[in-house]
Design a protein around this nucleic acid. Structure first.
Length: 808
DNA sequence: GGTCACCGAATGTAGACAGCATGTC
DNA sequence: CTACATTCGGTGACC
């Protein structure tokens, strides 16, 4: 089938496709067209990655918009939202506007109502439905990308429920579901009332094999000699072998540490294949990576990248990740060793994929658990770059013949597992039942059950009463916590229940927060008394950043020293950090050996600040959770006390990306807590907002005012404070030369800051810098204005070091 | 006294969505 | 019920 044979596309689109080099549709694409995707028919395309799934969706959306409709494309990851948006924007010349909506990003310009195609995560769509976004009822086509993720125990139910709600709101809605090849695509298609298009067809051949001894045996019967020298590693040999033919490799491993260790070893392999030109470019890239964050992780990554190897995992900062992904796509970086982040994330194909580890530690399982077939297939599916490679190779590693046979059996020949709905789990239903009631989809227990009856779960369950039982348990829970009311068989959301639903909180998180705030109100006097008593013992960490901060307070005017005690706020920031950290919406930090003692001690020291009764040490699980929440809270407190990033990563055993994640989650939860506090008890609202601002800006409380000024982050705020400018008002009245010196002689920056602070005469013309600035500052101010990299003169100035404020 | 190679024991383990209202260096 | 790569810490050999 050729593009011009596809019915329903807007005028000019077939020509555009031909100009992109698309002469002929791929067989599965043609099959989808025959099934009517461009004529409003629902279709489930269960086909391999990289075989043109997105294009099936594009054709459906274009034709739907052509008929005057509006399309929604649901992605599983925020990173994919921007990728898809960029891809779809090439249709703008045909009158198709694209908008994105995710938690941290919303396309600017007009409100989404005016867009023809909207890209969003499933959680965002769910949230938009809860908040009655007007355009939801105007949808004519919804695309669910990676729909097999309904199997995911944490996020799958959201996708499942969201699709159900969208279809209930828009009875004639066209559903285009895209899925990897799974065991029970027919069941999923039936649930969605969609025509199934199933195929193994790939545009580039994929050879799957197992390496054992000195060769790889492939599924097509062929062999490839890849000798492993004595003392060498299989992975190294396979990467080198691919490079001999100019191909890149992706190595999947089972832990972050392994990813880093593998990259360190592989850099000695890749280094041998670099041209001088590449070496230059890589050196530059390594510099960029180092600039992202001043941590050990960043440094290690830069050292590896300089030699052509990289690692990739969730502990990396977002900028690290995209730099690595882009460089790998540009073939500058020759190999990436990665955890599953890369298999699920943005498109990063490679000539060869090595699945080194096929087992992963699973605490609940109690040891190493073999990966799902689906997951391994997803990783292997990354092999083969369209237009670059004649074929892709995916290789598993076996140390003996038995393992080789097992791997063939288990992964190469095996069909992927069936997709199973995880909706009946209590945590999932807690959230979704409340939302279903709150947004008016059901008003009775029976109504809820009827809604649930249309889910994938219902079509799959072989345990009839289960859903009903869990529903009752959950309704009892919601009622007991005051989120819903039941009367004469009807169920309705209370005012708090509505708020919780709209805030997108897990009801259990909301209950925890409400309990904590109430506890604070009840124990205010008592806790404050205790706090005054232990004042001297409650100093936060002895960090570089903090030391400087306190020194500067002392060096400034001495009379500031006492203010800390007198206007103490309650609850304290640590108390609030701990409160949100023990909520199920916050991913818990792992307690390492020794941490138990450390934080038990910490717990007793800081107990007056914690909002709730510390569980007994004998209640093992609860106590552990309490401590690990305390560890998270301490991390947040460090961050909000201007402790350097590398100090934090070292102290808590996390990567720069983890800090960012914690901070973001804390910000969100504290925002939610602020709203909840406002709904009940005004007294703590101020404290909550202050704690939230401190995490947001990453500053101690004395800088909150300054950091709120546009153009001033944690570093500039501290420098200004150090120069004696302590408030926004000081900025308006201070000697301009002092401001200029504090901002290191950047005139334009200083003008912008003064303007943002509301100064009437922000101009910096004819202003000289103040005396008494450090040499380093002076040198920089006079010598450079274009912000070039410089290694040397920053070392002695902690405020200079890169910080989290630099990416986001 | 100091360094180094080696070996057994201890250690620690993937990922990432959301409110709201706007702007870091 | 299940693992395993890496790092740590101790040991003995050697200079």
């Amino acid at each position: 089938m050729r593009p011009e044979d596809v019915p329903g596309l807007p005028e000019g689109v077939p020509e555009q496709l031909q100009s992109e080099g698309i002469e002929e549709l791929y067989p599965p694409q043609a099959e989808a067209v025959e099934a009517g995707v461009t004529e409003g028919e629902s279709v489930l395309a269960s086909i391999p990655t990289a075989s043109g799934k997105t294009f099936v969706a594009e054709m459906a959306m274009l034709s739907s918009v052509q008929r005057g409709g509006k399309a929604l494309y649901i992605v599983p990851l925020r990173a994919l939202a921007s990728e898809k948006k960029a891809e779809f924007e090439r249709w703008e010349e045909f009158g198709v506007d694209v908008g994105v909506s995710t938690g941290n990003y919303e396309s600017s310009g007009e409100w989404l109502s005016s867009r023809d195609v909207i890209v969003a995560t499933s959680e965002k769509v769910d949230s938009l439905i809860r908040n009655n976004a007007p355009w939801v009822s105007e949808l004519s086509c919804v695309v669910a990308d990676e729909v097999h993720l309904v199997d995911d125990s944490h996020r799958g139910p959201t996708l499942e429920v969201t699709l159900g709600k969208l279809r209930k709101i828009n009875p004639g809605l066209q559903v285009v579901a895209l899925s990897a090849t799974v065991g029970n695509a027919d069941e999923v298609a039936e649930w969605l009332d969609a025509t199934l298009v199933e195929s193994d067809w790939r545009p580039i051949d994929l050879k799957m094999g197992v390496h054992y001894g000195n060769a790889v045996s492939f599924d097509d019967g062929s062999q490839r000699e890849v000798p492993v020298g004595k003392g060498d590693r299989k992975t190294n040999a396979l990467v080198a072998d691919a490079l001999d033919e100019g191909g890149s490799s992706l190595v999947f491993v089972n832990s972050r540490r392994n990813a880093e260790a593998a990259a360190k070893r592989l850099k000695d392999v890749t280094a041998r294949y670099l041209t001088p030109e590449e070496e230059g470019e890589l050196a530059e890239l390594a510099g960029e990576i180092r600039d992202v964050s001043d941590t050990e992780t960043s440094d290690t990554l830069a050292n590896c990248v300089a030699k052509g190897a990289a690692f990739h995992h969730a502990g990396l900062a977002a900028d690290h990740r995209s730099l690595v992904e882009d460089a790998f796509r540009d073939r500058l970086v020759k190999t990436v060793s990665a955890t599953p982040t890369l298999a699920a994330g943005v498109n990063t194909p490679s000539r060869r994929v090595v699945v080194r580890d096929w087992q992963r530690y699973d605490g609940e399982f109690g040891g190493m658990k073999p990966l799902d077939v689906l997951e391994v297939h997803q990783m292997m599916g990354r092999a083969g770059r369209p237009g670059l490679d004649p074929y892709g190779e995916a290789v598993l590693l076996a140390k003996d013949a038995d393992t080789r046979d097992e791997l063939f059996e288990r992964y190469v020949w095996a069909d992927p597992e069936p997709v199973r709905s995880k909706l009946a789990a209590e945590p999932a239903l807690r959230t979704h039942l409340l939302a279903t009631v709150a947004s008016g989809f059901a008003h009775t227990r029976e109504g809820l059950l009827e809604f649930l009856d249309r889910t994938l779960y219902a079509t799959q369950t072989d345990e009839p009463g289960r859903l009903e039982r869990v529903t009752d348990t959950v309704l009892d829970y919601l009622e007991a916590n005051g989120f819903v009311e039941r009367e004469d068989g009807t169920v309705s959301a209370t005012s708090v229940g509505h708020t919780v639903s709209r805030l997108y909180l897990d009801p259990m998180s909301a209950a925890e927060i409400l309990d904590g705030l109430e506890w604070a109100a009840d124990h205010r006097e008592e806790s404050l008394r205790k706090l005054e008593g232990v004042e001297s013992a409650s100093e936060p960490a002895e960090s570089g950043g903090f030391q400087r901060a306190s020194e500067m307070v002392d060096d400034g005017d001495g009379d500031d020293a006492g203010s800390f005690e007198t206007d103490r706020t309650y609850p304290t920031a640590l108390g609030l950090f701990h409160l949100v950290s023990r909520t199920p919406d916050m991913y818990q930090l792992y307690l390492k050996s020794g941490d138990r003692e450390t934080y038990t001690e910490e717990c007793y020291e800081r107990e007056p600040e914690l909002l709730g009764k510390t569980p007994s040490e004998y209640e093992d699980v609860r106590f552990e959770e309490w401590l690990s929440a305390l560890k998270t809270a301490r991390l947040l407190e460090d961050w909000a006390s201007e402790v350097d990033e590398d100090r934090i990563t070292e102290r808590y055993g996390v990567g720069p990306g983890d800090i960012r994640g914690k901070v973001e989650t804390a910000q969100w939860l504290l925002g939610a807590a602020e709203r909840l506090a406002g709904e009940l008890d005004r007294a703590s609202t101020v404290a909550v907002r202050e704690a939230k601002k401190r995490v947001e800006y990453g500053v101690r409380d004395e800088l909150l005012d300054l950091a709120g000024v546009r153009g001033v982050g944690r570093k500039r705020a501290r420098r200004l404070f150090e120069a004696g400018i302590e408030t926004r008002n000081d900025l308006r009245e201070a000697d301009k030369s002092v401001v200029l010196a504090a901002l290191r002689g950047r005139r334009k920056t200083a003008e912008n800051v003064l303007e943002a602070a509301g100064r009437r005469d922000p101009s910096m013309d004819d202003v000289d810098e103040a005396e008494g600035v450090s040499d380093a500052t002076f040198e920089r101010a006079s010598g450079r204005t274009d912000g070039e990299r410089d290694e040397g003169d920053d070392a002695d100035d902690p405020q200079e070091q890169a910080s989290l404020g630099d990416f986001g």
